[in-house]
Amino acid sequence: MIAIELPAGPAVALVLDSPHSGTLYPNDFNAAVPPARYRRAEDMYVDELFSAGPGLGLPLLAARFGRIYCDVNRAADDLAPGTLDDAAGMALAPSAKARLGKGVIWTATPPDGAPLLAAPVRRADYEHRLSRCWWPYHAALAGLLDDARKAAGVVHHLDLHSMQPVANAMHEDASGSRRPDIVLSDREGTSSGPAFLHAARAALESLGFSVALNDPFKGAEILRRHGNPAAGTHSVQVEVNRALYMDVETFVKSPRFEETRTRLTAFLAAMRDWVAAR
């Protein structure tokens, strides 16, 4: 349910992960809406946009399961009790995202928050999703980061995502707000030292992208769990505007796809060189 692509040659201490580009929905996924609705939640093609990473010496981890089936960028207990058929005795901690229907198991579908599930999720299925998807993904990412940090002393990490061009009712920024080309996040300075964040911003802006920092996204569970600059792990989240590479209604790649991938490959090369020079 996960894929790891390692560099063929010498690795650089810069790890990539794409947690939301998966397209597999196992048999216990019981949706009340058609794929054209729930697939809007996928970070479509993000793993492809950054697929040059391993050729540049950068390991790339990607989830193959759909994010709404099991969202590894949420805490394992980030779930409203009503999502399950039996939550008795469970210490769940639903966040604001879970209350919007975007917890570790989604209960709503974009853009308007329509109900996603045909019935509550069985408690056993929730536990199975964690053991099959959530824990293996975080273990794989921790392993890649640990290996790189042991080899180099410090590791840098780009957590790769995409965003809708315009905020909708399931977002925390005002519905209708237009987004820039790229949003970079470091949980307000807690998941990375400032040098890495600002190097990423400078590299992207030099390639003609408009960039915002920590607005409207600040980073979620992956950065919270793995980013630890005091211990030598610097994690930054990258959100790419889908209008740069796809039609958000038909899910088809746009004529700009290859151009955007080429520019993002140049971004990865610039960050590889920045990391290697430190």
Rank of each mutant, 00 (worst) to 15 (best):
R261S: 14
L207V: 02
T260C: 05
G153I: 09
E258R: 06
K218A: 10
I182D: 06
H198A: 01
A148T: 03
G153V: 13
E249W: 06
E258P: 00
H171T: 03
D186L: 10
H161K: 07
G189K: 09
D147T: 06
M163I: 13
V240E: 03
I222P: 02
G176E: 09
A231R: 03
E259S: 03
E258Q: 06
L244N: 01
R242F: 06
E239S: 04
H171P: 00
R149G: 06
R224Q: 15
E172I: 05
P194D: 13
V154D: 04
A142G: 00
A199C: 12
H234N: 14
G143N: 05
G153L: 09
H171W: 04
G227P: 09
E221Y: 05
V248P: 08
D181I: 12
V240Y: 00
P180A: 07
V252W: 01
Q164D: 15
E172N: 07
V211P: 08
V166W: 06
R178V: 11
R256F: 03
A169L: 10
K253Q: 11
V238P: 05
A212C: 12
R256I: 05
P165K: 14
V155Q: 01
F257D: 14
G143I: 03
M246F: 04
L184T: 08
F217L: 10
N241D: 15
